[in-house]
């Protein structure tokens, strides 16, 4: 039996106004896995996460965390999970130490507050009021409180938003270390690089639905690579060898720029360059690009939008 720590089946969530933020998503996260929910603002990441955290009831579908309903069987789940919300949640007039003490006393098996604060680089800031912390320090305090009970499952809602590059790296290192210790992590992010760097698997959310899911490499591999260049003067797309023979699966023209899509980048590029050499033309602004998560992400968003427009 596979050890599924998080199990989401056909989750739907509507708000009182009638807006449906999550429209039937399903995914599972195994023990010790780091799963990223990637999406633009308003894609439904936080709405999904809040149901998993047990803050909200789903409108439809089922959600299980560690085998329990996180909303109705709260007492069974909470001692084993740690949560970092998208923003804030600590009284601004309390100091860091006072906040940590309060949180530790409310958490089963809490670690020593000094150790936890040190692990996020907040040693020596204990006497400072929360309102005087920088944005990055607040995020790190938030992370520390999520970690204080050594949770088996960690929910991180945009953990690095508002951090500078160095703070982001440090948080990544910390999250990686937790994963290596066997902590199951579900994080949301709109930073592609973050998902690429950290996630074992990810799901790209778009308008409340999962547009793509799988290992980072698989999601990327499902997208075509691209070759683009400026057509030499006097040449037209029809002057190229038949595109299908080059292994090209699609193309579009914008002005003088031709963009080819292919699943066999090396074959297509070689054929194209051989043709250019034989014909004696120069391919200006040549750009040969393997599929990346960014391309995949943009393409998925574009496909979904086109699809919607077609339906209309």
């Amino acid at each position: 039996m596979t050890d599924q720590v998080i199990d989401v089946t056909d989750l739907r969530r509507s708000y009182t106004g009638g807006f449906e933020a999550v429209r039937g998503t399903s995914f599972t996260v195994g023990r010790g896995e780091l799963f990223a929910l990637l999406g633009t603002n308003g894609a439904g990441k936080t709405s999904t996460l809040e149901v998993l955290e047990g803050l909200a009831r789903p409108t439809g579908g089922t959600v299980r965390v560690l085998g329990h309903d996180p909303y109705r069987e709260r007492a069974a789940v909470r001692p084993r999970t740690g949560v970092m919300l998208q923003e804030g949640g600590f009284p601004s007039e309390l100091t860091v130490d006072e906040t940590a003490r309060m949180w530790a006393n409310c958490t089963s098996g809490a670690r020593a507050t000094a150790d936890v604060l040190a692990s996020v680089g907040l040693s020596g800031r204990g006497g400072v009021r929360v309102k005087q912390l920088s944005g990055g320090e607040k995020r790190r305090l938030d992370l520390a409180m999520a970690l204080i009970g050594d949770p088996e499952v960690l929910f991180l809602d945009e953990p690095t938003t508002g951090l500078d590059a160095e703070g982001r790296r440090e948080t990544w290192d910390l999250v990686r270390a937790l994963r290596d210790q066997g902590t199951t992590v579900l994080l949301t992010t709109h930073y592609l690089e973050e998902a690429e760097q950290l996630a074992d698997r990810l799901a790209i959310l778009h308008e409340g639905r999962i547009a793509a899911t799988g290992r980072v490499a698989d999601v990327v591999a499902s997208q075509p690579s691209q070759i683009s260049f400026e057509l030499p003067d006097g040449y037209f797309p029809g002057d190229l060898p038949p595109l299908a023979q080059l292994g090209v699966t699609g193309h579009d023209v914008q002005g003088r720029t031709l963009r080819l899509r292919t699943d066999e980048l090396q074959r297509a590029a070689t054929a194209l360059l051989t043709w250019a050499k034989d014909t004696g033309v120069e391919l200006r602004r040549l750009d040969v690009r393997a599929a990346s998560l960014e391309e995949a992400f943009l393409q998925i968003a574009k496909d979904a939008t086109n699809e919607k427009e077609t339906v209309r």
């Binding site: 047990g54 007492a75 949640g89 009284p91 958490t107």
Partner: peptide, 12 residues
């Protein structure tokens, strides 16, 4: 200040 929401994510 979202303190209530944050507390609800824990065991309280």
């Amino acid at each position: 200040e979202l303190v209530l929401k944050r507390l609800r994510t824990g065991e309280v």
